[in-house]
Computed example of a mutant assay.
Amino acid sequence: MFKKLVAVEPLNLIPSAERALFDYAQEVVMYDNMPESADEMAKRIGDADAVLISYTSRLGKEALEHCPNVKYIGMCCSLYTPESANVDILYANSRGITVLGVRDYGDEGVVEYVVSELVRCLHGFGTKNNGTLREPWDGIPREITGIKAGIVGLGKSGGMVADALKFFGAEISYFARSEKEEAKQKGYRFLPLKQLLKESEVIVTCLNRNTVLMHEEEFAEMGDRKILFNTGLSPAWDEEPFAKWIDKDNVVYCDTLIALGNDKFLKHPNVNCMGVSVGRTRQAFDRLSEKVLANIEAFMKSQQN
């Protein structure tokens, strides 16, 4: 059992999971707002030996070096690589601190979002951000059937998006670090990034946080008359070439501002940003809660061996 467990910000756990935290520590402290600085983060952690954090704040060396008792950091959010994490995992590990995160808890909502917004775009349903009525993408309502869709990053969520679009009849291509046999068996084409951007009408980027693959050359190769979705927790592009590209005959969809990158784009007529994380569903919170508690159990078991 931990001596003191601190949740440094809201965790998005279901009530029963929050109550369960008290079974794992002699003292539990939970904050209902985000720390505004590294100093405040360090003060909140104090002498705690366990820390829980969501995706909205950063826990770096500058805070951790003032918290000598920490043994465990539970990320109540996705953890794919140390580079994309909002915790300085390399520093934590150098201190002997165990950092555990979760994966694959909000992907279903992402898939539904992409399908929903693509249908609205192709059919002309609803209104734009500036309040004007949409027009069908091609001037006449159109199905997903036969559309060329390129998936950039074929991890769990990218694979689920690809499968969903294929179900509706899209032709799927993808770019990843390497060709995937399972995707090949499904008939998905593995393409170099620039070729995928050029040949696809719909591009969906499903990348880890802070992964930028679309630079000026990529936007030039992609050209115009394209529909771009970014489902990550940060922009998949450099801002300057993106700004030039979105001024042309293109459209982009992001669920949150952190995926879009700059609030100056929010009122752009070719930008569609909902301002709500599409992975924040009731079912996602259930899955997240189960995995956060399972990670704590796994850590405690490892300490007993």
Rank of each mutant, 00 (worst) to 15 (best):
Val6Met: 05
Ala7Val: 04
Val8Trp: 03
Glu9Ser: 14
Pro10Lys: 02
Leu11Trp: 03
Asn12His: 10
Asn12Leu: 11
Ile14Asn: 15
Ile14Gln: 15
Ile14Phe: 04
Ala17Trp: 02
Ala17Pro: 08
Phe22Met: 01
Phe22Ile: 00
Gln26Lys: 15
Val28Ala: 06
Val28Arg: 00
Tyr31Val: 07
Tyr31Arg: 11
Met34Asp: 14
Glu36Ile: 15
Asp39Ala: 14
Glu40Met: 13
Met41Asn: 09
Ala42Val: 13
Lys43Val: 09
Val51Ser: 00
Val51Asp: 01
Val51Gln: 01
Thr56His: 05
Leu59Tyr: 10
Gly60Glu: 10
Gly60His: 10
Lys61Trp: 00
Glu62Leu: 04
Ala63Ser: 15
Ala63Thr: 12
Val70Ala: 10
Lys71Ile: 05
Tyr72Ile: 08
Tyr72Met: 12
Tyr72Trp: 12
Ile73Ser: 04
Met75Ala: 13
Cys76Asn: 12
Cys77Trp: 02
Thr81Trp: 00
Pro82Leu: 00
Pro82Phe: 01
Glu83Ser: 05
Ser84Glu: 05
Ala85Met: 03
Ala85Lys: 03
Ala85Trp: 05
Asn86Trp: 01
Asp88Tyr: 03
Leu90Tyr: 01
Leu90Ile: 09
Tyr91His: 08
Ala92Phe: 11
Asn93His: 14
Ser94Cys: 05
Ser94Asn: 12
Ser94Arg: 09
Arg95Phe: 06
Gly96Asp: 07
Ile97Lys: 09
Thr98Tyr: 00
Val99Ala: 13
Leu100Tyr: 07
Gly101Val: 08
Val102Met: 04
Val102Asp: 01
Arg103Gln: 14
Asp104Asn: 15
Tyr105Met: 06
Val111Ile: 13
Val115Glu: 05
Val115Asn: 08
Ser116Thr: 14
Val119Lys: 05
Arg120Pro: 00
Cys121Leu: 11
Cys121Ile: 00
His123Lys: 15
Phe125Leu: 15
Gly126Val: 04
Thr127Pro: 00
Thr127Asp: 08
